[in-house]
Nucleic acid binder design. Structure first.
Lengths: 220, 220
DNA sequence: ACCGTCCTGACAGTAACTCTCAAGTGGGAG
DNA sequence: CTCCCACTTGAGAGTTACTGTCAGGACGGT
């Protein structure tokens, strides 16, 4: 397979994360869309688990989810996006903005990441675990993930720039966000490595240690 | 296009980097292989520059380089690899091993990275610049690059583990390498951002500042 | 019940690979 | 110099991830 770089125009529209259930009942059409989205993703996850990511063509996912292949691509611009859908960035950003403005930036970042991670994990623990496992094991997904985290870094940078009054492309800011994301990524992978069942507490502890290392200036 | 995850079995064999010219004259066959490799890459870079990465099909590269499409894929397992060939990891590793063993790990890493970067840059400055520019601008390449730097991180980790006597999968070690690579990546991007002509001195300065931020515990 | 809008499936087309096989070239042995 | 084996190349067919178009059907308000 390959992974060209398509327009990459995420829908990013109204279709809410299928993990939160707002009490307001959307129209029948909307509900069907959410159902279809879930069906595709669930089917995909099941097949990936059974026979592997690469060995699972989109056509098969479509067939077993009982939709046409075109529909799959309408919901997920790329096969990778079936795994990597994350609307987490706005969540992180919002959480970060709610931190007291006088708080030191790294602390604010740490706390924001803490609560974001907790919320993401609690939304669907099993699926989150499987997702991270897939990301770690499938090179294409890892690549796409890091690609995405570059955007996250940019977002964090903007937020930090606002806080500190520095320019958005300030080198020190770039370094800080790059280092934090790099460290956190390792913590994540380390988390899924520790046995099969990572718990939220484990994750918190790992993140704490990771950020601790950063704050101590990478001393061992 | 897409980017599945093929066997990813890099040739990684004898074909030396086309940048260094060892005095020993290899056989005619070997020389032809190197020529072909260079021809493909040069043609590709020229076309990428002219019409963009995504807008340049492999078939066109093959045609203009006067080889068959199959040959292109024989030399570079994926289109991305035409840009991302780097045999730098062994270089970094060797340089790192040559540092005095009693040197503090982060210092050793810094010095090893310094000289490696300098050597890579000096081998072919123009091409290096164009490569980094491409990596920054093409999402697929960025993704693949970070994927690769995960391997580099692993390599660094092993070297550090040796030095410090820690386990290879030690969390702190992962954090340190992850953070350093994250920070260095940002420094690189920042380097190509500053005007069109990044100089080696600029790069050194950026790396110094980046590692300085890390050593100060991400204080701004 | 009607009608415009949104959604879906069928289909054709592009491009990145992958595999196989036959023909050509290099290099060493005699 | 010649013969032969090993390596390399080109050609072609096949798979898979997408992309765009178009017609039919369902939804939802009037």
């Amino acid at each position: 397979m390959r992974c060209m770089a398509p327009a990459r125009t995420e829908p990013a529209d109204d279709t809410a994360a299928d993990t939160d259930l707002p009490p307001a009942k959307p129209s029948l059409r909307e509900r069907k869309k959410i159902q279809t989205r879930q069906a595709i993703r669930r089917t995909a996850y099941r097949l990936f688990e059974k026979q592997g990511y690469d060995a699972t063509p989109v056509d098969q996912i479509a067939e077993e989810a009982e939709v046409s292949p075109s529909t799959v691509f309408r919901y997920f611009p790329t096969k990778e996006d079936i795994v990597l859908t994350d609307e987490y960035d706005p969540l992180i950003e919002e959480t970060l903005r709610q931190r007291p403005p006088n708080e030191p930036p790294v602390t604010a970042l740490r706390e924001a990441l803490y609560s974001s991670i907790a919320r993401i994990y609690q939304a669907d623990a099993a699926e989150t675990l499987q997702r991270i496992r897939l990301i770690r094991e499938v090179p294409a997904l890892r690549g796409r993930m890091s690609e995405h985290s570059a955007e996250t870094a940019w977002l964090l940078r903007r937020a930090l720039a606002e806080r500190t009054g520095r320019a958005e492309d300030d080198l020190e800011l770039r370094i800080v966000t790059g280092a934090m994301l790099g460290a956190l990524m390792e913590a994540m992978y380390s988390w899924v490595d520790t046995g099969t069942a990572g718990t939220l507490e484990d994750l918190r502890a790992l993140v704490t240690r990771a950020l601790g290392v950063l704050e101590r200036g990478l001393t061992l």
